[in-house]
Structure formats: C-alpha cells, structure tokens
C-alpha cells in the first residue's frame, strides 16, 4: 500500500541550523497494516509523515502510495490518497465553519469542487448526523455549530471522522491524542481503533506513549536519528511488553532509553 524508498530530508541546509531529519528511510506497508511509531524528539517521526503527505519535497528517494509514485505531487494532490489527523486540534478543522460544512469539505477530498453546486446537499446532512452519533459526543445535534466552539477532544474526533469520511488509502495520525487530557485521549484512541478496524484502513500512528504503541496496531516501528531502528510485527508484536521494548531498544541503539515520559506514559 505504501512504499518509501531511501528518502532523505535536510532542513536549513548550509546553515548553522542544518538538521538532517531523514537519512535514507525505507518502509513498506502491506494493505491493512496498522503501524504505531515511537521514538524520541527529533527522531524523524513527524518528518516521515510530512514527507508522505507532501508538505515539502524530499531531497532524495521515492514514495509510492498504492503503486502510484507521488514523490513529485504537491500536498493538495496527494490528499486524495490520504486521511490526516494532526497533533494540534486546531490544525485539522476550519474553526469559523460549521461542523457539517467541515464534513462536506472532507467528503469532497480529491474531487472537483463545483462553483455552481451547493456546498452541502440536504441528503448529506442525515449521513453526517448518523456518523457524528457514532462518536457519542452529542455533536449530531449541532451540525451548524462553528467548529471553533468545540473542545480539543471533540475537534480531534471530528478530524478523525473527516479523515476517514472518504476511505483513504492511508491514514496518517501524527500524535493525534498528545494534546488531549488522558480520558479524552483514551476515548479518541478507542474511536480510532473502531474506525480503522471497521474500514480496514492502512494506518500509521505516531505516539509518545509506549503502552499505546504496544496495545494498538499489528506492527510497531521505533525511529532514531532519521531512520527505523526497530520493526516488530506479527506474533512478536502481540506478545510485546514495555520491558521487552526497552530491552530491544537498548540492543538496537546501543544506549539506554532515557525518556521518562516514554516509560511512564
């Protein structure tokens, strides 16, 4: 479904702030894979997702989604393959527009937007109402409410719905629960699992939480210094514990895992 071949990305090349964020990263995902990604700050996790989404061009390498070479496609053109949820709840939705309007925008992802056809058909509203009801947040009765009035958790749940309204080839979740309180984060993760399982979505989920990374998905990768240092899948992934992971990390990286947040989280 996704093939990343040997990609490199350097920011601020030639300056004192030069930072090589991806160093020859390669990754292949099978159809229906749900991969969790962990790694310290600056390991290149978000950079990898941004490279796939086409936020900027990569310096070297190739990215294929479902066999289509998207390496040279701009961000908005790649959007038709991708569903994205961001760390900041503000990023994924248009605050001054209504809930239904946001959903209607997502419904037309990757399609021609007609300047003569109304933005939301009446028939869509019933569909959105039903979908919103599945979130269990009471949003189904607030179709015209401005998204700016919603809480962070509600916005993330809505963004998740928008990202998957049109089945994406690949769902990219960039620490989408990191900005939420623990209870809301758990609820959003639960919804994520439901949607991913229901639609059998190929998914990449970045998280700072080792336990979440172990519990969710069928594959786990750990990144360091712009590359993948651990790739655990299948039966091995199912039996994985936090202790195992720490042990494996020490062997793979040759150093001790020091982030308290990752251990305790």
């Amino acid at each position: 479904m996704l093939e990343i071949k040997d990609i490199y990305k350097t920011f601020n090349a030639g300056t004192i702030n030069e930072k090589t964020a991806l160093k020859g990263l390669s990754l292949t995902l099978e159809d229906g894979d749900f991969v969790t990604v962990i790694g310290g700050n600056g390991a290149g996790k978000s950079t990898m997702l941004n490279a796939i989404a086409g936020v900027w061009p990569v310096d070297h390498g190739q990215i294929l989604i479902d066999g289509v070479d998207v390496t040279k496609l701009s961000e908005h053109k790649r959007a038709k393959f991708l569903g994205r949820v961001f760390q900041d709840p503000m990023t994924g939705t248009a605050a001054t527009m209504g809930i239904a309007e946001n959903l209607a925008l997502a419904k037309r992802r990757g399609k021609m937007r007609n300047p003569f056809i109304t933005g939301i058909k009446n028939s869509e509203k019933a569909e959105y109402k039903e979908l919103l009801a599945t979130l269990g947040l009471g949003l189904e009765d607030r179709l015209t409410a401005k998204v700016g009035l919603l809480s962070g958790g509600q916005r993330q749940a809505l963004t998740l719905l928008m990202a998957t309204l049109q089945k994406p080839k690949l769902l990219l979740l960039d620490e989408h629960t990191a900005a939420l309180d623990p209870k809301t984060a758990a609820k959003v993760l639960e919804t994520t699992d439901e949607i991913v399982n229901r639609d059998k979505l190929t998914t990449i989920m970045i998280t700072h939480n080792m336990k979440d990374a172990i519990v969710h998905g069928n594959r786990l990768i750990m990144m360091m210094d712009g590359n993948i240092i651990l790739d655990i899948k299948g039966e091995e992934k199912k039996k994985l514990t936090v202790e195992d992971l720490l042990h494996k990390f020490e062997i793979a990286s040759g150093e001790e895992f020091t982030s308290d947040k990752a251990i305790l989280g």
């Binding site: 989404a53 961000e75 959007a79 038709k80 503000m90 939705t93 925008l105």
Partner: peptide, 13 residues
C-alpha cells in the same frame, strides 16, 4: 480560515 486543513482536504490553496 485554515490553509493547512484545506490542503489536507485536497484544496489547492
């Protein structure tokens, strides 16, 4: 309103 969101929804900002 939100160009990042717009691009993620396939809109040519």
């Amino acid at each position: 309103c939100n160009p990042n969101m717009a691009r993620a929804q396939g809109i040519n900002t």
